[in-house]
Design a protein around this nucleic acid. Structure first.
Length: 459
RNA sequence: GGGGUAGUGGUCUAGCUUGGUAUGAUACGUGCUUUGGGAGCAUGAGGUCAUCGGUUCAAAUCCGAUCUACCCCA
């Protein structure tokens, strides 16, 4: 099953792994289109909530990177360094950003002067670099990461908390477009982001039973604003440090879409992500080729005018080849049009997610396509959510655990936490942020608790 | 972090034990016939055998290092 996650990614040809640097792959045109669709959703979501897109430099000077002690401790083992410029060694080494806090915050300290400048809400979509020492894997663990990161500054803790809640709302809307179920889990103290006050992980579950972290939301409090001196003057003329948050997601989203929705025939793309939402296949017949072609092009034109992303496949190959091709590529809806349909005034609809075929009236084309795409999106999310729910097992003992995500009791103590991780041979993902009824005992010490903890083998 | 397996036209692969310039399939180009689930025939093009070094008259083949991919264990 672990293999399946990988095979689907590779068969679909979204990335070319032949580039000769470990963990650095080439995006193919089709793969990049999918990534761009996801980026577009992210931009829409964050623009709509008054975030400003920015773009900071890739290189960070060593001294600037080193200001926050926890942060550098968490990252310095996995940064790439630039040590030379041309033939000359650099006085101050430069690193490729593993994440952009230390690139942005010195500049934020110049941008933020007064309470009127707050909140400062920014984001960028850039590549980051991490020298992963573990096995690399396309989209899931790479050394050059296509990365989204929002960075915000707030007058006080409560306003930063409001930002975290806004991030949850944005995420919910995005994930429904991607048809990806997830849990918001507050990480343990020993697993939080280096430098954060607390970290909330966005975790999904793959068909293999392993968890995949899709993103993370961090509350920094004043942990970065103090070393980077991001201060403002409040209404009373007093100088205060800002409270900060970040939200990060990456190309892992593509990996998640592929692994969660893909099947034996290849990719299955959610309609909001699909480069082509609909593919039209003309089924030509001897002597009638012109007639069928024209009718098929008319379908294409009508859908295109209605704002549907549609492609007509007029290659001179047999229809069966086209069916297999577009199934592999994951196009949500296939329309077939041949003489048989034309004579009846129908169009053949074939859903990618279920394979179900149906005949629809040609006259009602646009509304039938729209409602079918909506139905496909709805069903894909519903199926994936159900799958994730059934992949979580609630237990009151760590013996003989099933190959699932585990939900159990934890008193919250660090000693018990480590013992849970050791005995279960899984990682603690965290405790739920959202409502999650539970009434049990810590599996280690037996102390009663109302909060469950989630464990999994991480991808 | 520890161990293991592998790299040959775009892709997959034979050849490696026993050294003598590479096999087949698929995909690709062209032409004709086809078209409701992977068509057929003809023809054409495509390889510094991962890289670097060593042994040898001669290396895909033997030896070493490096890079990359994959698997298992922590």
């Amino acid at each position: 099953m672990v293999q399946r996650d990988r095979r689907e990614v590779e068969k679909a040809n979204l990335t070319d792994k032949r580039y000769p640097i470990k963990g650095m792959n080439v995006w193919t045109p089709y793969g990049w289109k999918i990534m761009q669709a996801i980026d577009r959703h992210i931009r829409e979501g964050f623009d709509a909530t008054d975030h400003q897109e920015v773009c900071f430099p890739l290189l960070i000077p060593e001294d600037q990177f080193a200001k926050e002690k926890e942060h550098i401790k968490g990252f310095d083992a996995e940064v790439f360094w630039v040590t030379h410029a041309g033939l000359n060694p650099l006085d101050v080494k430069l690193l490729l950003r593993p994440t952009s806090e230390t690139a942005m915050y010195p500049i934020f300290s110049l941008w933020v002067r007064s309470h009127a400048d707050l909140p400062l809400k920014t984001y960028q979509i850039v590549n980051t670099f991490r020298y992963e020492t573990k096995q690399t894997r396309a989209f899931i663990r790479v050394r050059e990461i296509h990365f989204f990161e929002s960075h915000t500054c707030h007058a006080d803790f409560e306003d930063a908390e409001r930002q975290v809640r806004e991030d949850y709302d944005i995420l919910e809307e995005l994930a429904s477009k991607w048809c990806i179920p997830y849990r918001l889990l507050k990480r343990t103290e020993w697993d939080k982001f280096p430098g954060a006050n607390y970290t909330v992980g966005v975790d999904t579950l793959l068909p293999s039973g392993r968890s995949l972290q899709l993103g993370s939301i961090h509350q920094y409090k004043e942990n970065f604003s103090r070393p980077y001196e991001i201060k403002y003057e409040d209404e009373k003329g007093e100088h205060r440090y800002v409270h900060q948050t970040t939200f990060g997601m990456s190309e892992r989203l593509v990996g998640a879409v592929v692994a969660i929705h893909g099947d034996d025939k290849g990719l299955v793309l959610p309609p909001d992500i699909a480069t082509n939402q609909v593919v039209v296949i003309p089924v030509l017949a001897k002597g009638e080729t012109e007639k069928v072609s024209n009718a098929a092009r008319a379908l294409r034109d009508e859908l295109k005018a209605a704002g549907v992303r549609v492609h007509i496949d007029e290659r001179d190959v047999r229809p069966g080849v086209k069916y297999y091709d577009w199934e592999l590529k994951g196009v949500p809806l296939r329309l077939e049009l041949g003489m048989r349909d034309i004579e009846k005034g129908k169009v053949t609809f074939v859903r990618r997610d279920t394979g179900e075929k149906s005949l629809k009236d040609r006259a009602r084309l646009v509304e039938e396509v729209r409602s079918m795409l909506a139905l496909i999106a709805h069903d894909m999310l519903a199926r994936a959510s159900k799958e994730m729910a059934s992949g979580i097992a609630t237990v009151d003992s760590l013996e003989g655990l099933p190959e699932k995500m585990i939900r159990t009791g934890w008193c919250g103590g660090e000693d018990c936490g480590h013992e849970i991780e050791n005995r279960s041979e899984r990682n603690i993902l965290g405790t739920p942020v959202e409502k999650d009824e539970f009434d049990g005992k810590c599996v280690v010490c037996g102390k009663p608790t109302k909060t469950p903890v989630y464990l999994a083998r991480a991808m």
